[in-house]
Design a protein around this nucleic acid. Structure first.
Length: 843
RNA sequence: GCGGACGUGGCGAAACCGGUAGACGCAGCAGACUUAAAAUCUGCCAUCCUUUUUGGGUAUGCGGGUUCAAGUCCCGCCGUCCGCACCA
């Protein structure tokens, strides 16, 4: 017999080498006739080290991929690197390293760490988005989109950091200041590249309906983000001018309750008027100062500036309304102008009360049909239209339809669908991203780079000692001849948003020819991704962009699928207790001793126990996976990641927990190691029916649980099976169960399974064994235990043959001593019999 | 403000279509083995009452309801978390 302790330090490296050399996890060619299973976890950003969140994410995907392989699927389970992005440039500025060197070193380090997890990954398909063989193909796709009219340029307002001289995303603006420089952020108009995601707004919305293997939460978030609403676009004519103000409303039914029209501070009319009115100019400037944080918007007072202009009401040209510039009207939504109906919109009411404008009720609130509207709470509920001439008596819905029809008939407006979704601005004034393959020529204008010139490769010789975009100030890189007139011209120096890189990598994994982004047939053989696993933080942007990109490719005829991810799973975070010292500084767990529930530092100073929260460097509550490999091995760590907490919920890291999983790994090992001794003695010791039933129930249950990603339940079933095997007396059944156990744990504990399989003389690799079959006959018992209730309270249980009919069940229940005693001679009024479950006696 | 999810022992959790609440694990307690510790093994472990018990009561955030039967369905609260946010 071999050692009584599993030795992961030898086993992990040994089996990882064998898996790699034998190529067992390489995806078969697309022509493989077996059903395909494409399992994908969101690829990591190479920040430097693998963290526990990665470990959890990749372990889950790995279990599924290994299980799919054992159940006869052709599996594609790849890995790559989302390797463009700002942290590399920050590192370049701070540490004086080249972003490429920094990134590639990180990839090497993280790849080594991932390999120690023993993932069943096809490393031959590894890709990195910062390498020309990837981003060059992305440039080709950009040009395809450009040619198809899905790409355009326009001036847009951006958050500009005047110190770092770069555009900031909204998330990078903290309290109005740049997150790195701390300088007040300016609004700046820049000419930016956009992708026409709004062309697909309706399709992206309706497509959500078909995604029945996506979490409802994510679908709802996307739905809200797309923000569809139906209404009326109509024109209010300016008095004394041929012009009009276009207004969008979702409440055309309340048109007779209008008391003013308001336009956004950025509206072209406001700008026009401001030229001759310094007070308005000041007011507009004030509006732009307003912050964008939650609290500021919540408390921001409604402010308006009366322009002195009037407009005619479209339903009654003799009815004139004042025109205001108002701080709460957004230029980005609708037409940047509204009509105010104070009685039925809270913002309009706040505004009307402040500026003493008319407030007329036009929707009855219960019995209240009075045109006079009291109070400061607008009524937005349903009701009958009142004080509205021809609309009186209609429901809100009927009035909407009527007004829209009328507007279209008389030509002053039309029904319209609005989306909150805006086009995707993809320009970034940065170095470490995919160069946009465009050339600007003074004579020919915007020229796409000829295909033959792709990839446009980033220059290596760049410096980061001055803020701003290194591509822009590179001495030679941007100088290029116009592809049309051959005169000197300039390259586009903006690079693409890194979300573009992650919008199609799953297609490139499925098919990676050298001469084009992907081969359609090969990609379609694998896609859509059968199971996608990642964090909820990507619920909107990444997943929406990827859905858009795939649709855009379908639109231009490059691929025949619309939805890239058939099933989506969003896993919970890995959390850990956090600690603070007396002076408020965060402490790392290994600086803290816990004794009897009281935490102190190593030197005995008091420690405050903080919240259990996501591991983060700033809170110092990070546990690095690397030492865990050294101390417990990959399998104990994997088992911890799968145990206890349901995968969609947060998982709290604990020292006791990893100790526990390490002990369990060894319990299984002892079963494997003991098999040969037992078998020589009692090889033909007959069947143990009870154990066989447990085994077959486990086979069936573990399979369904893995398939449903209920790893915590699969873990519980393995525990039950191991308990049963340990307790069972030696028998042929027991020996068989131990051998089968190796196959059952193989997806979750692959190194232990291989080691055990080899120890027990199994053929080949357990990873390539078929998943064991279960005998359905063994899943059903001949006898069932039936609950016996009196008035719904449990009084007894009786074990009866499964074949008992209702009458026999009732008789058995009534014969129970406890029932007789409880009834105490009373005659049951009614007896409810649920075969296989219970008998409820109503006394 | 709008939208959504969740709330079960000391802890993480399970419980299928409404049908024996607490599987499985962690922690804990008691014991065996040991010179000792670790490891390992055995047993106990929601709570209260009762004289033991094969005894009884109460328990799934709180209050109601539907039902023979509710953790599960319905209504109303309370709490926690998440998303969006002046979207007309």
């Amino acid at each position: 017999m071999s050692q009584s302790r599993f030795n992961p330090f030898k086993a992990d490296a040994h089996w990882q080498k064998i898996w790699e050399e034998s190529g067992v996890f390489a995806a078969p060619p697309a022509s493989d006739p077996r059903p395909k299973s494409y399992v994908l976890e969101m690829f990591p950003y190479p920040s430097g080290r693998i963290h526990m969140g990665h470990v959890r994410n990749y372990t889950m995907g790995d279990v599924l991929a290994r299980y799919k392989a054992m159940t006869g699927h052709a599996v594609l389970h790849p890995m790559g690197w989302d390797s463009f992005g700002m942290p590399a440039e920050n590192a370049a500025m701070e540490k004086k390293v080249h972003p490429g060197d920094w990134t590639r070193a990180n990839i090497a380090a993280m790849k080594a760490q991932l390999k120690r997890l023993g993932l069943a990954i096809d490393w031959s398909r590894e890709l990195s988005t910062c390498e020309p063989d990837y981003y060059g193909q992305e440039q080709a796709l950009f040009l395809d989109f450009y040619k198809a009219g899905l790409v355009y340029r326009k001036d847009s307002t951006v958050n500009w950091d005047p110190v770092d001289m770069t555009v900031l995303a909204n998330e990078q603006v903290i309290d109005g200041c740049g997150w790195r420089s701390g300088a007040p952020v300016e609004k700046k108009k820049l000419n930016q590249w956009f992708l026409k995601i709004t062309d697909f707004a309706e399709d992206l919305l309706s497509g959500l309906d078909g995604l029945d293997k996506w979490p409802d939460k994510v679908k709802l978030m996307q739905e809200n983000w797309i923000g569809k609403s139906k209404g009326l676009n109509c024109t209010f004519s300016l008095i004394g001018s041929g012009e009009g103000i276009d207004v969008f409303t979702t409440r055309p039914d309340t048109l007779y309750g209008a008391s003013f029209v308001a336009i956004a501070a950025d509206h072209s009319l406001a700008a026009e008027l401001a030229q001759n009115d310094p007070r308005l100019k000041d007011f507009i400037a004030d509006c732009k100062k307003g912050g964008t944080t939650a609290a500021e918007i919540e408390t921001a007072e409604k402010m308006g500036f009366n322009t002195g202009l009037s407009v005619a009401h479209p339903l009654d040209p003799s009815w004139h309304l004042p025109v205001y510039v108002a701080n709460f009207v957004l230029i980005e939504y609708g037409t940047g102008a509204i009509f105010g109906c104070p009685a039925h919109d809270q913002r309009d009411l706040d505004f009307a009360r402040k500026y003493n404008l008319a407030v007329t009720r036009v929707v009855a609130e219960g019995d209240d049909t009075s045109p006079v509207f009291d109070g400061d709470t607008a009524y937005t509920g349903p009701g009958t239209i009142v004080n509205s001439h021809a609309l009186n008596g209609m429901s809100v819905e009927a009035a909407k339809t009527t007004i829209i029809a009328l507007a279209e008939q008389d030509g002053w407006g039309e029904g319209q669908t609005q989306y909150r979704l805006r086009d995707w601005g993809v320009s970034r004034q940065r170095y470490w991203g995919t160069p946009i393959p465009i050339i600007h020529c003074d004579f020919c204008g915007v020229m796409p780079v000829p295909r033959a010139h792709l990839p446009i490769i980033l220059p290596e010789d760049v410096s980061f000692d001055v803020p701003g975009n290194p591509l822009d100030r590179h001495p030679t890189w941007k100088n290029v001849a116009c592809p049309n007139c051959k005169e000197p011209a300039r390259r586009e120096t903006d690079t693409l948003d890194t979300f573009a890189d992650s919008s199609w990598y799953f297609i490139r994994f499925a098919s990676q020819p050298k001469d084009k982004p992907f081969d359609r047939d090969e990609a379609e053989a694998w896609l859509p991704v059968g199971q996608y696993i990642g964090g909820i933080e990507h619920a909107i942007l990444h997943l929406l962009y990827a859905r858009f990109w795939t649709r855009a490719l379908a639109h231009i005829g490059k691929i025949g699928i619309a939805e890239p991810f058939e099933a989506l799973f969003t896993q919970g975070m890995v959390t850990h207790e956090s600690f603070k010292s007396a002076d408020g500084a965060w402490l790392s767990p290994n600086e803290v001793v816990i004794d009897g529930g009281v935490a102190t530092t190593l030197s005995g100073a008091p420690v405050t126990r903080g919240r259990i929260e996501k591991m983060s460097k700033s809170k110092k509550n990070v546990v690095d996976p690397d030492p865990m490999f050294d101390q417990y091995g990959a399998d104990a760590l994997r088992w911890f990641m799968l145990s206890d907490s349901p995968p969609e919920r947060d998982l709290e890291w604990s020292e006791a927990g990893i100790e526990g999983t390490w002990r369990f790994v060894n319990r299984i090992w002892r079963l494997f190691a003991s098999l040969d001794l037992v078998s020589s003695e009692v090889e033909s010791n007959g069947h143990d029916m009870a154990l066989e039933k447990t085994l077959h129930r486990s086979i069936a249950g573990i399979g369904t649980d893995i398939e449903a990603l209920h790893f915590n339940k699969a873990v519980a079933r393995v525990h039950e099976l191991v308990n049963a095997i340990e307790k069972a007396s030696p028998s042929a059944s027991r020996n068989a169960a131990i051998k089968t156990l190796a196959r059952l744990i193989s997806p979750m504990l692959p190194h232990l399974a291989e080691e055990g399989w080899a120890e027990m003389g199994g053929d080949g690799l357990v990873a390539t064994q078929p998943w064991p079959d279960h005998d359905p006959a063994l899943l059903v018992d001949d006898e069932v235990t039936i609950a016996v209730q009196i008035n719904g309270k449990l009084r007894d249980t009786v074990t009866v043959p499964k074949t008992f009919d209702r009458a026999e069940l009732e008789a058995a229940a009534l014969a129970s001593d406890k029932v007789i005693r409880s009834l105490d001679g009373a005659i049951p009024k009614k007896v409810i019999v649920v075969p296989g479950r219970l008998v409820n006696i109503v006394a």
